[in-house]
Each structure stands twice: as structure tokens, then as C-alpha cells.
Computed example of a mutant assay.
Amino acid sequence: MEFLILLKSITKRSNGKGLSWLKNRLTEYIRGWIGYYYVADMKTFLQRTEEWYHRRIRCYIWKCWKRVRTRFTNLMKCGIGRWRAWQWANTRKGYWRIATSPILKCAITNDGLVRQGYPSLLGIYTKLHSN
């Protein structure tokens, strides 16, 4: 449970530290925690937690794209069509709700998050568990 509490405090939307700090801090914390507990069989726990974790990161990224223009251009860069990007950039839905929208899931995929440098809970776990 302490893992989720600390993970929640790292990914607070109001910390204002930026995405590079977030990536470094998450990598450091997740590797340390999984490295300590990797002997335990916690695959199902990590699967459930990873869904929440990816939603939390999407929420953080959406908050970083504060302005409508920034959201619009970034959604376009992620491959979303012009009209759909404009609609979703102007949405009034909250951060947590928009993080599960089909548009944001399409724009910021789980594989895309890993490619950008965000650590994968199951990836680190399977890498340590296979050795």
C-alpha cells in the first residue's frame, strides 16, 4: 500500500517539476521498490497497478499541456485528426476523466510512454524475475 501512496505523491499534478523530473523520479522509485520485492509473486498486483499508473501519467501530461493551442498541436503531432484534436483540446472534462478517453489513449499509448522513457512496472518485474 505504501507503494501506491508514494507513487501517488510523485505523480501529483500540482508539483510543477516537469516531465523529465517525473521520468527520473519514477524510474528511480519503481526500480528500487520492485528490486526490493521482486522475489514475491506480485504480477497480478502490478497488472492492476499499471493500468492506474498509465492513466495517472496521461493525466499528468494532459495537465502539462495547459493551453488549448498546446493540446491541439500535441494531439495533432500524436496522429489525431485535425477536427477530433480540436474537439478534444477544447473539452471541459476533468483531467482524470480525459485520461481514459479514447482519443488520449490513442495519442498517448502505453508503448509510447515506455518509448518516451517512463518505466513499465511489468517490464521491470519480468526483467528481474527472469534472472
Score class of each variant (00 low, 15 high):
T11K: 06
R71H: 05
K63Q: 14
S101A: 03
L121D: 07
I34G: 02
S9L: 10
G79M: 01
T27A: 13
R48N: 11
K66T: 06
Y29S: 05
R31I: 09
F72Q: 05
Q87T: 07
C59R: 13
I57H: 01
K43M: 13
R69P: 07
T70D: 14
L4Y: 06
L113A: 11
L4D: 03
Y36H: 05
G79W: 00
I57N: 02
I34K: 00
W52A: 11
M42D: 06
T49E: 06
L22D: 04
C106F: 00
P102F: 02
F72T: 02
Y29I: 05
G94T: 13
R92F: 09
W96D: 15
A99K: 10
G94L: 12
A89E: 03
C59L: 08
R84C: 01
C64N: 06
L113F: 09
L128G: 02
L22K: 11
M1G: 12
R84Y: 01
I98M: 15
W62H: 13
K23F: 02
Y37F: 15
K63N: 12
R67V: 04
I108N: 05
R48E: 13
I108K: 06
G123A: 06
P102A: 01
I124M: 09
G112M: 02
I80N: 00
P119E: 04
R25E: 10
L128A: 03
L4E: 05
K105E: 10
V114C: 04
L19A: 10
K127Q: 14
A99D: 07
K43S: 14
R48P: 03
R97N: 08
A85V: 05
T44W: 09
V114K: 15
V39L: 07
Q47N: 08
I80V: 15
S120P: 12
G112W: 04
R13A: 08
C78T: 02
I108Y: 10
S101M: 01
I61Y: 03
A89Q: 07
G32E: 13
R31C: 15
G123W: 04
G16K: 10
W62G: 04
E28M: 05
Y53C: 10
H129T: 07
W65V: 01
E50Y: 03
L75E: 01
G81A: 11
K17F: 13
F72N: 01
N15R: 11
L6N: 12
W86K: 10
D41T: 12
W21H: 11
L113G: 13
T100C: 04
K12A: 14
R69E: 15
Y36E: 04
I5F: 12
H129M: 06
G18S: 11
L121M: 14
T27R: 15
H129E: 05
R31D: 11
G18M: 08
W88R: 04
G117D: 13
A107S: 08
N74E: 13
D41A: 13
Y38P: 02
Y60N: 04
A89F: 02
K105F: 01
V39H: 09
E50K: 02
W83C: 00
V114P: 05
W21P: 10
W21K: 11
L6K: 11
L104T: 04
Y118M: 01
R82N: 04
